[in-house]
Design a protein around this nucleic acid. Structure first.
Length: 825
RNA sequence: GCCCGGAUGGUGGAAUUGGUAGACACACGGGACUUAAAAUCCCGAGGACCCGGAAGGGUCCGUGCCGGUUCGAGUCCGGCUCCGGGCACCA
């Protein structure tokens, strides 16, 4: 053992040891319970920095801890290797996306190894590997057969900068999630996954995902946006052949309907409007709506624009004729694209009615001191014919029943969630395995032809769309049905498809009989603990849940949900912004490792705060972590031979006074660190407890005269610290363990158990309060009665001074902790 | 606008179910070592005020603000303020 702590040398030593011994290789055998811990895999964008390291450090603590606790742990790593930045690099620097990606992978893999993260590297995968995405293509064909994948022409979100379509989940406030360009609308043919078919199941399972953070569940529920209501037809006045369907969540308010609105692009509008003058007005209105939807969509409190049509509709409930509008606040994409308007009980309708001078009928009795506009609360129905006197909930049921009895409508559930658009007009992604034949139309690729390999020999210019379109060998192919000339699909899949099942592939990464070897999936799935950033609360995490359910229905896995528990870690922040290359505020992990070592970098990020909170980067904080490891190193170096020589058998009964307290602290620390890691993932307090124990040991070791007697306790304390520190700072812990003359490695040693006997206290510190204020503290034997404590407290001179002869009204005793004497005045 | 979080020393953060607020660490101040500095080690510390020559001792206030429940509130309840996040014409 060297006197100086040289992190670089020992980190290399142990990393080599782990690699050579395949310490972290996971196998399916063993009588141990399995534990699958996974961090969201990274996009190989270049370099890992300390902003990225946090999630891996968290995952590694859990993986190492669980191994020591006797679990068979799967902890894999791979690369989300398809995506736009690779293409952009190709455009900017003329490097092929594949080369750029794999170079980044090589560098980042090396970085992760140098951080000492305990991955089973034999299971590494990259999603751009044809042996990976071929299974996704096979599943695509299966989804196609079942109608879960389908093609349609639709108005889509288009990112002009990325030159591709985006899914709804990938648009944030009208902007692209990646490049923040303003998203526009386009009518385009594309492929969709029918996630809406799973809307109910995705929603129902939200309440069973008890290991997920509440806010992620809330976000997913909101995103799915289930609403129950009714649908029915409104006939058009004087045109018996024409009617339109409306959806409402408030069928109880039908008697308050004073007008109806169609979305501007509603197909009925063209049939309703025949007079040339009105047609022009409609077209002008539509043009205006289309224009504003791009720019003013995000604007707050947008005024509602509408155009009154000459046609009128009939309220089927009371036969009343009502005016009909087209208006921008009704969307074609939700419900039926048409609404009945009830300004009395809907704020949007109220706003519109006010600006257009329309009637407002109240159908729910307002509370006594109500002063608002539209009333959306509960109450008793009024002005509502046969619904009068009912509550809102009862009236909803009655109104719906009324519609059903007459065959006019039905109960209906609508979702905000829309099908997942997966076509991307880009090169660097997994090819969609279908062909278009002039004679046969769309035909799937034959299974034996899979994978449809993404060709490497392309020119990427960034202009004129995907280079696949002009790649003759790829784009033209023989029809799989008639053998005739066919055109291959040149869109590629959204990269979120690859990340929707990578956790499955880790179970059997080499398996060539399908996506996953059934036995391996049955053994490892689901992921027991998933860790990642909150930014994927509705993106990746919703897609992966959906895709898993599809795979389950295809018989490929037998789990309903992919991730049993989720930990959403906070960002690493520096100078008030998230640490990122584009912000220019990154701290390189290479530099941290060079100066302090991987253990220090990890320890700092774990100690600075609980994982779910944002973490403020602090150079001094890193220094502090380094100082702690150095002090520990030096302490063990100094006392090394005494510690090795000291006997280790200990019984609390043989100890007295300070040493017994120290012994108790050791076991209290073991208990606390165990619980902090296992129950709450509060690594910061676990590390604080370790530091506290070390401070106590240092103090005990200073008294040289008693060192002999103290040695066994100190030895036990030091060894406990080294073991407890292992998940956080594995290299230094391993080295210190070895230097204490241990032949087995820490992975084999196992996690310590605290001894309940050691925790027992022979004396108690009782806080004495008078009227709730601390007035004294007394030390009493642990087995003492309340009466005894009370009399001792009253005898305490300080306490007596405060009592000052006042009459005691009441005494509250909290066993073993506190005595509160309540006095008059 | 709606729905979630959050607010504790100079700073990051502790405080298990209501029971000693501020663990641990950073920064800071003082001291030791040193020719000097760095490193290291030791000591101090929420604020205001009081007693004492001093070492030391004491009182009051204090967890964003106002109120409540309780013997006792950082923790529970009601009402606000500010900050962060999500959704935003979804009928």
């Amino acid at each position: 053992m060297e006197e100086r702590y040289r992190p670089k040398a020992i980190e290399q030593k142990w990393q080599r040891f782990w690699e050579e011994n395949k310490t972290y290789q996971a196998t399916e055998d063993g009588g141990k319970p399995k534990y699958y811990v996974l961090e969201m895999f990274p996009y190989p964008s270049g370099r890992i920095h300390m902003g990225h390291v946090r999630v891996y450090a968290i995952g590694d603590v859990i993986a190492r801890f669980k191994r020591m606790r006797g679990y068979n742990v799967l902890h894999p790593m791979g690369w989300d290797a398809f995506g736009l930045p690779a293409e952009n690099a190709a455009i900017e620097r003329g490097i092929h996306p594949a080369k750029w990606t794999m170079e980044n992978v090589a560098y980042m893999r090396d970085q992760l190894k140098k951080m000492g993260i305990s991955y089973d590297w034999d299971r590494e995968i990259a999603t751009c590997d044809a042996e990976y995405y071929r299974w996704e293509q096979l599943v695509f064909i299966r989804m196609l057969e079942r109608g879960i994948a389908y093609r349609k022409r639709s108005s889509v979100n288009w990112c002009p900068s990325c030159q591709t379509v985006l899914a709804n989940e990938q648009v944030e406030g009208g902007r692209c999630w990646r490049c923040e360009s303003e998203v526009t609308k386009r009518d385009i043919d594309g492929w969709y996954f029918k996630i809406t078919a799973y809307a109910d199941e995705l929603l129902d399972w939200c309440d069973r995902l008890t290991g997920w953070p509440e806010r992620v569940i809330t976000m997913q529920k909101n995103w799915i946006g289930r609403s129950e209501g009714a649908e029915f037809d409104l006939p058009v006045v004087g045109r018996s052949e024409l009617k339109f369907r409306v959806f409402t969540t408030r069928p109880d308010t039908v008697f308050g309907m004073t007008y109806a609105v169609l979305a501007p692009e509603h197909p009925l509008v063209d049939q309703l409007v025949t007079a040339p003058g009105e047609r022009d007005a409609v077209e002008r209105f539509r043009a205006e709506v289309l224009k504003q939807s791009e720019q003013e969509r995000v604007a707050e409190d947008r005024p509602k624009h509408g155009l009154r049509l000459s046609a009128r509709a009939i309220n089927p409930f009371n036969g009343v004729e009502i005016p009909l509008f087209i208006a921008d606040y009704v969307l074609m994409i939700y419900g039926t694209g048409a609404i009945m308007a009830v300004p009395g009980e809907d704020q949007r309708d109220w706003d519109f009615a006010k600006t257009h001078g329309l009637d407002i009928i109240e159908t729910v009795k307002r509370p006594a001191n109500w002063s608002g506009e539209a009333y959306t609360g509960d109450g008793i129905k009024i002005n509502s014919g046969f619904l009068d006197g009912l509550t809102v909930a009862d009236a909803k049921r009655r109104a719906t029943a009324w519609l059903v009895e007459r065959g006019l409508g039905e109960a209906k559930i609508n979702y905000r969630l829309r099908d997942w658009g997966i076509s991307r007009q880009r090169y660097w992604g997994a090819p969609i395995p279908v062909l278009y034949c002039d004679a046969c139309g769309m035909v799937p690729e034959k299974e034996e032809n899979l994978p449809v390999v993404l060709p490497r020999d392309v020119q990427i210019s960034g202009k004129g769309g995907s280079p696949l379109v002009s790649h003759p060998a790829f784009a033209s192919a023989a029809c799989t049905r008639c053998g005739g000339q066919a055109r291959r699909e040149t869109d590629t899949m959204d990269t979120f498809v690859e990340s929707s099942w990578y956790f499955l592939r880790y179970c059997s990464p080499q398996y060539d009989g399908g996506m996953v070897e059934p036995g391996a999936a049955a053994y490892w799935m689901p992921v027991d603990q998933y860790i990642g950033g909150i930014e994927h609360a509705v993106l990746h995490l919703l897609y992966a849940r959906f895709y898993t359910k599809v795979l389950r229905d295809l018989g490929l896995v037998n789990v309903d949900e992919p991730f049993n528990a989720l930990l959403s870690q906070g960002m690493v922040v520096k100078d008030g912004a998230k640490m990122s290359k584009s912000k220019g505020n990154v701290v390189s992990d290479d530099m941290i490792r060079e100066k302090y070592g991987a253990d220090t970098g990890r320890l700092f990020e774990l100690f600075a705060g609980p994982p779910e909170k944002d973490l403020e980067w602090s150079d001094q904080g890193v220094e502090g972590a380094y100082r702690f490891l150095t002090r520990l190193w030096r302490f063990i170096f100094q006392h090394r031979y005494a510690l090795i020589a000291a006997p280790s058998a200990l019984s609390p009964n043989e100890l007295s006074g300070d040493l017994r307290n120290l012994h108790r602290l050791i076991h209290r620390t073991i208990k606390k660190v165990t619980e902090d890691i296992e129950d709450r993932f509060h690594f910061n307090t676990a590390i604080a407890a370790i530091m506290e124990l070390f401070n106590a040991l240092s103090a005990a070791a200073q008294d040289e005269s008693r060192l002999d007697m103290a040695a066994p306790v100190i030895k036990s304390g030091v060894e406990s610290i080294v073991i407890l520190l292992y998940p956080f700072a594995p290299h230094i812990a391993s080295e210190l363990w070895e230097s204490l003359d241990h032949k087995t490695t820490l992975d084999a040693v196992g996690w310590p158990k605290h001894s309940p006997e050691a925790l027992e206290e022979e004396t108690l510190l009782i806080v004495v309060q008078i009227n709730g204020k601390v007035r004294g503290k007394i030390t009493v034997p642990a087995d003492v009665t309340q009466e005894r404590i009370q009399s001792e407290a009253l005898a305490d001179s300080r306490v007596a001074g405060f009592l000052d002869g006042k009459r005691v009204q009441r005494v509250v005793y909290v066993p073993r902790r506190l005595l509160n004497i309540v006095v008059e005045g």
